[in-house]
Design a protein around this nucleic acid. Structure first.
Lengths: 187, 187, 187, 187
DNA sequence: GATGAATGAGAGTTCATTCAT
DNA sequence: TATGAATGAACTCTCATTCAT
């Protein structure tokens, strides 16, 4: 295995564990055991556990944004693209590994003063907002900036709660409800 | 101090620490040091740390529901009661100790198999949903059951994301956006 | 309940627990919970946990010596009295609460410097030796002192290992073997 | 120090303490302090304290069986081999660290449901029985199986009580008495 | 570049005993 | 005399990280 492959292998392994069981609950020993590498090998690739956390967040986000973009761009223009994020979530929710939002989960586990991780999370959400703004402006004509902002923020908030609450209630009703309200929002 | 007073004193102390710094990040030693009691005293009142967690969640919830109910019932009927939860959150957000939703924060920290804490959290959210349903049916006439459910769920989801996202983005824009969408929902 | 009755009630309760689960494994809290008394009540009757231990040993011993004496005196003179201790043990072994010798069990749990408990245990064994010597001299005629001592010590040692080893191996073969050797010893 | 050396160093240290002061009375902190290692180092070598207990029992047993076998094989055939175990014990008893049988001591301290340790102890005693059976059949001609079994069990029981009782009474008379009875048994 | 044993600090929990009521 | 909440010390065990090889 090449250097960069090992690094990615560590990230994959850690991601599965962090996302499934939580950041604090997952120990370094568990990661190296599942990855099949030595402890110092891990520390040759990452300075601290927090660094692995950031790599995990970035990995999840990149993968997610690509999948989301592909999904929505594959839908017919209009309503199906605007509400595509909820339909995408319906698929995502069915995945047995679905466990809510990694950002929300992680931010709850780190101390408030950990700015590095907080920044990464905020940036990811800003990027999601940018993407949604793009989808909104592409699919609704003649919108004022204020209207675009309102709809974008609304869809974003509804999506975020649909993720959190479907996980919390262990049910998909929040996804359907969020989509309903979203449909009214873009009408 | 009486027995029950000490118990409440422990809950208060632990609540502040859990809510501010997280459940796993807060150790028993920190709680007893801040509460000024011996370790075994704490364990005379609570069987395990998880039991303190449940007491913390219940305490936060009880306090919150009373304050929310009082706030909304003090508003004029109609729009101001229906959107009152967002106005309440604006006040709540200004509190320097505001740190997002204790349920969402806690659920991210405990293992999936911890059913006792999960149940407590789900029950709290169900109670909030019940309260919102009550507000909706009291303030909007001639609603079908389906319409009442849709509006209730919508307000609930918007409120939940307003809490999470204002905390995540360290800004109150999600509260205003959520209120805007809520206003359209009940129009 | 009278003062002395409470004391005996504590001893009974503690004895069952000490004998079944061990001295160190049995906590004060377990004793008072099972006895249904307050903690300070226990400490009004006993200065320390070690004092309860001594009371437990004395209680077991007294009960045991009376039962053993009655059993042997109820047998026909000769072989049946001389080997009666093994037959008695066969009954004792069948008792579901049988758990080996309280002396051996207890001496393994206390520090070497605890002379009070050690003395009590040594005295109990001396008393058992005295009783056996009495049985031997009463049932075998024309014994020299040396012969009486040899047989007494032999029966004692065989009995002691029959207790220990039947418990250790969870089987009654040591009792039968010990009786066989004892039979040869008195032949 | 090599890895296996440290492990053996831990076993040696823990064995001395367990055997001298008891299993429950000896804390992890005492072991690491005397061994001069860090707590986590100990836990890198042993999963739990119970695992150290088993290593202690095995270590004692191995050392003991080798010494016993050498001692007996060094004696002239016949009576001196058959009763060699008692002569061996006389030497063993003189050792200032003599503190009775580690099996009997340990079994008194662990809960009944601890099968792992119980099994180890029962196996050790079975191995001692096998060895004694071997000595008996090698040194007495023309024995029926039943006779061999009777003598083996008798010697075993006498040896076991000689260990326990010399320790309990802090005197070597039980060893001499046991040898006397053993001599009669093989006569 | 890779290893894995060793670490110090800290985790949550339980103990026998005391003392104000 | 009886209570039971409060205590300090001790318990077993785990953590992320370092360093000699």
């Amino acid at each position: 295995m090449k250097h960069s492959e090992i690094k990615q292998h560590i990230i994959n392994t850690a991601s599965d564990l962090f996302y499934a069981n939580g950041y604090n609950a997952t120990g370094i020993n568990e990661i190296i055991a599942k990855a099949g590498i030595a402890k110092a090998t891990l520390y040759n690739h990452f300075r601290t556990k927090d660094d692995i956390c950031i790599a995990y967040l970035k990995y999840k986000h990149t993968y997610f944004m690509v999948a989301l973009r592909n999904y929505i761009e594959g839908k017919p223009k209009g309503k199906f693209q605007l509400l595509g994020i909820f339909d995408f979530l319906k698929e995502f929710y069915k995945d047995p590994s679905f466990n809510g939002c990694w950002c929300i989960r992680t931010i709850a586990e780190i101390p408030a003063e950990n700015v590095e991780i907080r920044n990464e999370i905020q940036n990811q959400k800003q990027e999601l907002l940018s993407f949604l703004r793009e989808v909104v402006t592409k699919n609704i004509q003649n919108l004022s900036n204020a209207e675009a902002e309102k709809i974008t923020n609304g869809l974003y908030l509804l999506y975020e709660s649909a993720v959190s609450e479907s996980h919390l209630h262990q049910s998909d009703w929040p996804i359907f409800s969020a989509r309903d309200v979203g449909a009214q929002l873009i009408a």
